[in-house]
């Protein structure tokens, strides 16, 4: 019996500080045993428990795409005991990861459709995984138009800055990066995510919106998409809850009868409507 509580050993091979405030870093982890990489076969939207022995575990969305071989990446905000320990780590340190856990973005459902990706602030990690997956070589032609609306409070808080530039330079993905308030060097768009979504006005025709962000952003962005004609079935999000086991046993991350760790984290708003809300 495979013990689902035993993490795979990994080594931190690269750390990137993403934001000016220095409290969001991306960790690139390589499997110590090559065969574990094969076992850790994931789909964009899934997460893993990052394990710092002696401190604990923290459930974090996978930020890399399965098309990137040889490593997995996680973008982590320094917040609690485990994430603080992570932020103090140096390249070359060994730790563990347990997963992949949860369901994923519905890749098959997205195929052949136009995909609108809406992200806010730091909640852009599994969306980045999805984007990199969709635009990877031959994968690109399996999806229709890709429209991205991504916003942060200020330019210094945008994550994956180099990638945002690189994506904007490709012709096959429409990038709309915005900040609530720019600074002296900012030449891009200013405005809140819901406003920008209204301006971009993606067509609901054969389209799905995938949205991740702070609750306040979601609250104001949802009506925009309903007004545009998107149905609840075609607006998909990812939930976060406090978790421990990650496999639906320890009993704390349920929303109604569903466990976010095992039945989620990805839900459509139609599905969420049916659940008794407690999150």
């Amino acid at each position: 019996m495979q013990n689902p509580y035993i993490p795979y050993p990994v080594e931190v091979i690269k750390i990137v500080t993403e934001v000016d405030t220095k409290d969001i870093k991306t960790f690139r982890l390589a499997f110590v045993n090559k065969e574990d990489e094969e076992k850790f076969k994931y789909t964009p939207g899934q997460f893993a428990e990052l394990c710092v022995y002696g401190k604990g575990e923290s459930p974090i969305g996978i930020a890399s795409s399965p098309t990137q071989k040889g490593y997995v990446e996680f973008t982590v905000q320094k917040a609690g005991v485990v994430t603080t320990a992570l932020h103090e780590m140096e390249e070359g340190t060994r730790m563990g990861i347990r997963g992949p856990l949860g369901n994923s973005w519905p890749i098959e459902y997205l195929e052949g459709k136009n995909v609108v990706v809406v992200g806010g602030g730091f909640a852009f990690t599994t969306l980045r995984s999805l984007i990199n997956y969709m635009i990877y070589e031959d994968n690109r032609k399996r999806f229709g138009k890709i429209t991205v609306v991504y916003g942060a409070r200020n330019p210094g808080l945008l994550i994956y800055k180099d990638e945002l530039k690189a994506w904007a330079e490709r012709g096959d993905i429409e990038m709309n990066v915005t900040v609530d308030k720019g600074d002296a060097t900012w030449t891009g768009r200013e405005g809140f995510v819901p406003t920008v979504c209204k301006e971009v006005a993606p067509s609901p025709e054969n389209a799905v919106t995938v949205i991740c962000g702070p609750p306040i952003m979601i609250r104001f962005t949802l009506p925009v998409f309903f007004d545009l004609g998107f149905s609840k079935e075609n607006i998909i999000t990812s939930l976060e809850m406090r978790m421990k086991c990650g496999i639906g046993k320890c009993g704390r991350c349920n929303v109604g009868s569903k466990y976010v760790c095992k039945d989620g984290p990805v839900f459509t708003f139609a599905e969420l409507d049916k659940l008794t809300r407690d999150f």
Partner: peptide, 30 residues
């Protein structure tokens, strides 16, 4: 249940302990 880590000097262990939905911290997020 809860999962927690304990370390003394260079050695440590991960434990699981009963937890309770009656406790305020059970679902409290960081």
């Amino acid at each position: 249940f809860d999962i927690s880590d304990e370390m003394k000097y260079d050695d440590g262990r991960r434990l699981r302990n009963w937890d309770s939905c009656m406790f305020p911290l059970f679902t409290k997020e960081t």
